[in-house]
Design a protein around this nucleic acid. Sequence first.
DNA 1: GTGAAAGCGCTAACAT
DNA 2: ATGTTAGCGCTTTCAC
Lengths: 339, 339
Amino acid sequence: MGNRPTLIDVAKAAGVHLSTASRALNESTSAQISPETVKKVSKAARDLGYTINTVARGLRTKRTQTIGVIVPDLTNPIFPPIVRGIDSFLGPRGYSVLVVNTDNDPESERNHFESLMRRQVDGLIIATGHTDKIILANYHNQGITAVMVNREAAGAPYPAVVGDDASGINLGVAHLAALGHKKLLHLTGPAESSTSRTRAQAFSAACKNHGLQGKIIKCSAYSIDAGQSAMDKFLNQNLHTITGVVAGNDLLALGVYHSLRAHGLKCPQDVSVIGFNNMPFANDFQPPLTTIDAPHYEMGVQAARIILNEIEGEASSPVKIMLPVTLIVRGSTAVAKKI
Amino acid sequence: MGNRPTLIDVAKAAGVHLSTASRALNESTSAQISPETVKKVSKAARDLGYTINTVARGLRTKRTQTIGVIVPDLTNPIFPPIVRGIDSFLGPRGYSVLVVNTDNDPESERNHFESLMRRQVDGLIIATGHTDKIILANYHNQGITAVMVNREAAGAPYPAVVGDDASGINLGVAHLAALGHKKLLHLTGPAESSTSRTRAQAFSAACKNHGLQGKIIKCSAYSIDAGQSAMDKFLNQNLHTITGVVAGNDLLALGVYHSLRAHGLKCPQDVSVIGFNNMPFANDFQPPLTTIDAPHYEMGVQAARIILNEIEGEASSPVKIMLPVTLIVRGSTAVAKKI
DNA sequence: GTGAAAGCGCTAACAT
DNA sequence: ATGTTAGCGCTTTCAC
């Protein structure tokens, strides 16, 4: 890549010392320099096409203005909005974002973590549900600044930004109850994930509150395939024993769609299905998916806000921000079938 | 973030000179050092938990092992697979990826470009359809290493990795022709994008080849809304004059779905629809979308391979890699209705 | 095979 | 208000 001019070139062109040029060009120190000098230096910089070398600055200041974002898989549609939310807050403030995908593999996560450390990121935003307590505690012991997003911190007092999972599940169960459903099924995600546990607990509690019968089955991952095979297994043994499904997320709900179809069951006529997340295109599924909308973009924004505060401001006490969720009623839920 | 040990700490612990430690720890120079010394230094590094500071290395070597990836919008589902493909190739080779979103805004693109330059990225992978010739020529004049992905280079001799758009459109038109369709419509994306132009031209040519009547209407963006409003406009004036639609991409196809529904038309009974990209969840739409599968992940891999070659190997002559596409027939296409 | 020393481009005391 | 100087952590040329 091209040989860009350095500060020393600018200083020479402006006829001042290197350090004066540095001060003139830096927002926080330009007040120390006379207005004319600032103008002179700025002009020289512009004329030469000078841009600061953030690598050199980073070495000197020990700040790279880079945040590492750890996600399981960017192709899972809930993560791009989170990443964009993070970016929208950080970008205008001079920070860049390094996104890594772990694929829920601890080995991969460790490698990516090392890579981010080598790159001297100023902080971490962690969106992986699987990062175990030991790893997290480890991060904390190393003095690493981090914020959790879309999951709670376990094993370390890190701030977290989450959707109100319990309320969301409540809304879903209440909606099905209002439609006359009596026997519900919940597909829960991997137990390592805090959201899975929260949603499953909320499901049980909500069923009890509404006097409904609620079963829970486990899925090995938050994926269409995992949802389908879990539902297949259930239907093969329990055909026609439930009328409503509250899936742990929209991908699992999609797996349920596939399974119902394979078993000759119609949604919503035979079985109502509710997802979670309101992922992009949920409205275009067959049928359009009733789901809980979680504000992923805003979660990203909030996580970014907190981590910047931790880095640049005083370390706040670990906060937990819970953002409100809403029920989006579409075509996958209907009045309960008589069974 | 924690105060990590430096090379000098390792050197001291191993009882060797700083430069010896550096050589011992570097793959490419460790051969110069006696095996025992290498072992000694490696052990010291491990014991201390040493990890290299890539910022310092980058300052010295003028290589950051970072690639900038410029996309329009990460929430457009075709980009995450591309990014992951890039990452899958680059990650194991020690490179990281800095992804920026331009939202098709030239001002935003310029800002992000500056940011990437300040960060001393080793090269750019550009996936934005809108980057105009002047900007691209500008990059090239500055000696910037870049590779285009999912679009052709215009205005600069940069390598490009693209899907075989023309063949894809051909497959789609041939499929509709075989189903007895005589009058087709193509929704083309923004004219600035090379893929739009290629696909539109291929559509005209294919219609001619098959003796079909082919109309083309323009969409302001590759989005559901743009597709819907373009189709709305068309249907309001031309109800029942076409039986098949070849959309410029899957999002436009989804817009067509919405428009058809709003006009009381059924897909595929009244109108067959073909998309482009085979985006995630295309199989779950209503109806499942017949579309052209483009290998986005593989496009990312190839783009990464080329740019690494340009950076580390000799500069190859500008290549254009065209990856094959396939027609995926689903429920949105059927035998033509008599009109 | 290893040590010495310079320097990548910048910021931040410390002077004046 | 500006100049001087040291040094961030590393690689690499030059000695020996």
